[in-house]
Design a protein around this nucleic acid. Sequence first.
DNA 1: AGTGCGGCCTGTCCGC
DNA 2: TGCGGACAGGCCGCAC
Length: 271
Amino acid sequence: MPELPEVETTLRGIAPYVLGSSVVGIIIRESRMRWPIPTDMEEKLKNKQILGLQRRGKYILFVVDSGTLIVHLGMSGSLRIATADGPVKKHDHIDILLNQGPILRYHDPRRFGCLLWAEGDPLAHPLLAELGPEPFDPLFCGEYLHEASRGRKMAVKTFIMDSHLVVGVGNIYANEALFRAAIDPRRAAGRIALQRYRVLAKVIVEVLREAIAQGGTTLRDFVNASGKPGYFQQTLAVYARTGEPCLICGETIRSVRLGQRSTFYCPRCQH
DNA sequence: AGTGCGGCCTGTCCGC
DNA sequence: TGCGGACAGGCCGCAC
């Protein structure tokens, strides 16, 4: 599932092919996504030059002069550069044809993703307007987490995964960050001290940066191939390691469900 | 207002 | 070998 590092890697991978190119056409083979692809998407984008490419949380923004294409990869989506002579595979739902020749191809088996159109300021779009800060924003710090968590009873893991608090902390990295911060994921968010939130904010940024750095090594795979997500190369300390020994203390990693999500932790290291 | 859960999807894996 | 069912999960939208 694309976590923020995969989205960032996607952005960097497609940027050289997309920026400055013009859209000459769109092929929509399947419009049933999380929300239907607007029927007028092609006329909105046709003959438009892509002036900007940005990320906000896990949303990718393609900016043209008249508006913005907003893309979310959901949990199984990908954007790759294809060529006209290449095969169209199952779940290759959308092709955005670029004037220089390459095709920007959206592939998404589970169709949890979306492609939407925003007029004017894309950040004012309802899906983006209420998002919390980027984890790399200086605003995101221990003090911020501490203050926002006062009085909150929900588990700290559920808390940090709320995109209205901070964007980009998906299940894998929430688990990994809490392990590094030695915080029990089940602990009530409102009952964690400032000092511990300072550590947590720091390690969240750390795990995301590391994953992005790993993802950079797969950039070439964005042309005619399927790149491996950064976390496949990254050493995961707790995620999906139920029953295996903790890399720090050797205790057996446990799993629980928190907010419908698989949660992994070391019962000795995390409190 | 805060909280938790249902639903959207398909590929993969497991047990029978 | 086939088949049903559980599971994976980002995030909205709803109900309490």
